Simulated scan of single mutants.
Amino acid sequence: MIRTVQETGSTNADLATALRAGDAISEGDWLVTDRQTAGRGRQGRTWFDGHGNFMGSTLVRPHGRDPAPASLALLAGLALYEAVLPLVANPTDLRLKWPNDLMFGGAKLAGILLEREGDAIIVGIGVNLAAAPDLPARRTTTLSTFGPPPDRDLFANALAASFDKELERWRTYGLDPLVRRWESIAHPFGAPLTVSPPGEQPINGTFAGLTEDGALRLRLAGGESRVIHAGDVMLANEEG
């Protein structure tokens, strides 16, 4: 079920509030808004409120045998990729960037934010269908650059169906095939990256794939690898 509201502070925050109040929210339910006044991205950044864009949240209730909840960022990225893929003229320009961005032509097209509330993981997704924010030192893009903006409601239905399919695959087949698929549509192996782990100075290296549990492998200049479990990642061609 997709529920749409005209305006809210944050769809993630609304779902969290509803869960704390004991409301019955099922996997597959989505909250989508026309306007979001207090949206949040990773590390406290503002989540851009662009009219005509997709801004929505859903939730997953991980079971004991499910893969690690953090891997839901990869799952959401694949679902987002599959929903956007039919809308772009050149699929090779559409790439995933670890841990939670969808890029088009080296610029940010969409982002994902995961937050835990009790036994649920809330998955917030923002997609630049009609407009893109002007971010400092980071290029952004929108699907409307290449033609008429996609209908938001049709896109919401496509994304919800794609997310359901990826969630079933995640539970049925585990993390390995998901990681392999994610790598196949990510920035190429060897791509220069700058990673800023929490509380550390930026680290330069190249993309060396993902670990079995979905963490980033960064190849350093000396040839050694470092596993990154959290941090900001910038591609060499991403800076504005």
Score class of each variant (00 low, 15 high):
Met1His: 09
Val5Phe: 03
Val5Asp: 05
Gln6Asn: 14
Glu7Ile: 10
Leu15Ser: 03
Thr17Cys: 13
Thr17Leu: 13
Ala18Thr: 09
Leu19Asp: 04
Leu19Val: 12
Arg20Ile: 05
Glu27Thr: 05
Asp29Thr: 06
Asp34Val: 00
Arg35Ile: 15
Gln36Gly: 02
Gln36Met: 04
Thr37Cys: 02
Thr37Asp: 01
Thr37Arg: 13
Ala38Thr: 08
Gly39Phe: 00
Gly39Pro: 03
Arg40Thr: 01
Arg42Pro: 00
Gln43Thr: 07
Gly44Phe: 07
Arg45Glu: 13
Arg45Lys: 13
Phe48Gly: 02
Phe48Lys: 01
Asp49Arg: 06
Asp49Ala: 13
Met55Ile: 01
Pro62Trp: 05
Asp66Thr: 11
Pro69Met: 06
Ser71Val: 10
Leu72His: 05
Leu74Pro: 00
Leu75Arg: 07
Leu78Asn: 04
Ala79Asp: 04
Ala79Val: 06
Leu80Gln: 03
Ala83Leu: 01
Ala83Arg: 00
Pro86Phe: 06
Asp93Phe: 02
Arg95Gly: 01
Leu96Met: 07
Asn100Leu: 11
Asp101His: 07
Leu102Cys: 07
Leu102Thr: 00
Met103Pro: 02
Phe104Cys: 12
Phe104Ser: 10
Ala107Arg: 09
Ala110Cys: 09
Gly111Gln: 09
Leu113Glu: 10
Glu115Ser: 13
Arg116Trp: 09
Glu117Leu: 04
Gly118Ala: 11
Ala120Glu: 11
Gly124Leu: 00
Gly126Arg: 05
Ala130His: 07
Ala130Thr: 01
Ala130Glu: 13
Pro136Ile: 10
Ala137Phe: 12
Ala137Ser: 11
Thr140Asn: 15
Thr141Cys: 14
Thr142Gly: 09
Pro148Asp: 15
Pro149Trp: 14
Pro150Asp: 12
Asp151Phe: 12
Arg152Met: 13
Asp153Met: 15
Leu154Tyr: 12
Leu154Glu: 11
Phe155Trp: 04
Ala156Trp: 03
Ala156Pro: 02
Ala156Tyr: 06
Ala156Asn: 07
Ala156Thr: 08
Ala158Asp: 14
Ala158Thr: 09
Leu159Cys: 08
Ala160Glu: 08
Ala161Phe: 09
Ala161Val: 01
Ser162Ile: 07
Phe163Arg: 10
Phe163Ala: 04
Asp164Cys: 08
Lys165Ser: 11
Glu166Gln: 14
Glu168Asn: 15
Glu168Pro: 06
Trp170Arg: 12
Thr172Asp: 12
Tyr173Gln: 15
Trp182Leu: 12
Ser184Val: 05
His187Trp: 09
Phe189Asp: 10
Gly190Leu: 04
Ala191Met: 12
Pro192Asp: 10
Leu193Trp: 05
Thr194Cys: 10
Gly199Asp: 04
Ile203Trp: 07
Asn204Ser: 15
Asn204Phe: 05
Phe207Gln: 02
Gly209Arg: 03
Ala215Gly: 01
Gly223Tyr: 08
Gly223Arg: 00
Arg226Phe: 06
Val227Gln: 06
Ile228Val: 11
Met234Phe: 09
Met234Thr: 15
Leu235Ser: 08
Asn237Phe: 11
Glu239Ile: 14
